[in-house]
Amino acid sequence: MVNKSHVMPDDDIVNARTRLPPLNALRSFEAVARQGSFAAAAADLNVTHWAVGKQIRLLEDWFGLALFERRPRGVKLTDEGAALLGDVGVAFERLSSGADRLRGGRPSRQVSGAVRVNVLVSFALHWLLPRLPDFHALYPGIEVRISTTSRKLRYIGDAFDIGVRSGPEEGAGLVSHPLMADERLPACSPALLRQHPIRTAADLEKHTLLHSASTRGAWAQWLAQAGAPRLRAARHVEFEHVFLQQAAALEGLGVTLASLPLIERELAAGRLVCPLSAPVWSAPAYTLVLNAERGKDPAVETFREWMIRGGLSSKR
C-alpha cells in the first residue's frame, strides 16, 4: 500500500519535471566526463559519436553555457561542467541506492557462481582490493578469483572472464569497454613538499623523479606538456613495478607521476599530495576486457556492472 503522505501532488511532479534537464543528455554528459572524449563515451554507451555530440549540444543549449572545453585530443570539463558532474554523480548514486532498497537486495543476493578476474598488479592493489569487501557484502554468493599479470589477455586464452588493462585489447573472443580515464599528475608526500616546495614544473629540478619500467616515457611527455622538456631533475630512480614506484613516493623518496584513480585513498587521507594541478597527462584509459564466451554468465555480468559503477564513482 502506498503511503500517500510521501506522494507529491500531480502539479508538483509536473513542475519538478519541467525544471529537469534532458535525462538522456545527462547520461551522455556523465559518460563523456568519465571517459574524457566523445568517442570513448559513444563506445561505452553503444551509440555513435554523432549521437553523443548531439546530446551534449542539447544539454549546453539547455543550460546556456559550455560544459566542456574541446581540445585536439579529447575534452576537459569547464568549471561549470565540473560542478554539474558532482551533482549528476550524487543523483545517479541516489537512484542506484533507491533501486537497491526497492529490490530489497533479493535479485542481486541470489546471484551465485564464480568470476575470474585478471588485472594489473597496481590496479589490484590500489583500486580493486579496497573495493572488494563492498562487492562481497552485496553479492555473497559470487566467488571472485583474482590473478595479476601485465601480459596481453589474448595470450591467456580462456583462463579469465574479465580483465582490466591500459587501453583496449583486440583478439578473437575479446570485447573491450572503457572503464575510466587514466589521468596523471605529479604526486609526493607532504613532508617532501615541505622540504622543497613545488610551485611550477621548474621546481622539479630539486627533486628525485620516480619511474617504473612500464612508464619510462611518462615523465618526458608530462614535462613537454608543462613547457619544461629539458628539465634536469636532481636524480632519477626506476622501479620494476608501478606499485613500488607509488610506495616510494609514500615513503618520501621522490615525486611520482601518479594515476589519479589509483591514489584516491592516499589523497583523501593526506598521505600524498598533488602540488601541481596542470597539465594533466592522459595515459590510455583503463579498459574492461571481457571473455565473450563468458559475458552472459550472471556472475560475470554482475561483476562487470559493479566494476562500471566503481569507475563512475572514481570520477567524482
Rank of each mutant, 00 (worst) to 15 (best):
L231A: 06
G86W: 05
A137D: 09
I308T: 14
S176R: 08
L260N: 08
G310D: 10
P197E: 02
I142G: 10
E293C: 12
A172T: 13
P186C: 10
I56Y: 04
R34E: 04
S314F: 13
A278M: 11
R19A: 08
A124Y: 09
S147M: 06
G64E: 08
T48D: 06
R304M: 12
R106V: 13
L231E: 11
G36K: 01
K4S: 13
S96T: 14
A234Y: 09
F160L: 06
Q35A: 14
S150W: 05
S96Y: 11
A202F: 02
P107M: 03
K76M: 15
P261F: 00
M1D: 07
S313D: 10
L312A: 13
L45F: 06
T78E: 06
R304V: 14
W306R: 10
A191C: 02
I162W: 01
S259W: 00
L209M: 06
D158M: 11
E80A: 15
W127D: 08
L95E: 15
T287Y: 04
R154K: 12
P168E: 09
K206I: 01
A228N: 07
L288P: 13
E30Q: 13
R27D: 15
S282M: 12
C188N: 09
P186Q: 08
V47F: 03
R94L: 14
A233M: 12
G53C: 07
G295T: 15
D182V: 12
S5L: 11
S147P: 00
L204T: 05
E183F: 13
L260Q: 14
S212V: 02
G64S: 04
V75M: 01
D203K: 03
T48S: 15
T48V: 06
G36H: 01
P261W: 00
Q225C: 13
L276D: 04
R316W: 05
G157L: 06
R316A: 12
V144A: 01
L26Y: 01
S108I: 15
N3H: 10
N46S: 14
G86Q: 09
D161A: 03
D100W: 11
E69D: 12
R70L: 13
R101H: 11
V300T: 15
P298R: 10
H211M: 04
G81Y: 01
K152G: 13
R106T: 14
R71N: 09
A247L: 09
A285Y: 08
P21T: 07
L272R: 02
E183T: 15
A218I: 02
V119H: 03
S212E: 01
V117Q: 10
S313V: 14
S212W: 06
L84Q: 05
I142A: 03
R184V: 07
A285D: 15
V14I: 09
V2A: 11
L120R: 02
E264L: 14
D297Y: 03
H177R: 15
V237L: 10
A181F: 05
G157P: 10
R73A: 15
S112R: 15
L129P: 01
A187S: 11
I142K: 06
V175W: 06
A31Q: 10
V242K: 00
V111A: 07
R216Y: 04
A42T: 07
H241D: 12
E30K: 11
P9G: 04
G311H: 03
E240M: 08
Q110L: 14
A172I: 08
V289E: 07
L20G: 02
G157A: 14
N24G: 14
H126C: 00
S212T: 06
A249E: 05
T208C: 07
I198N: 02
P279T: 10
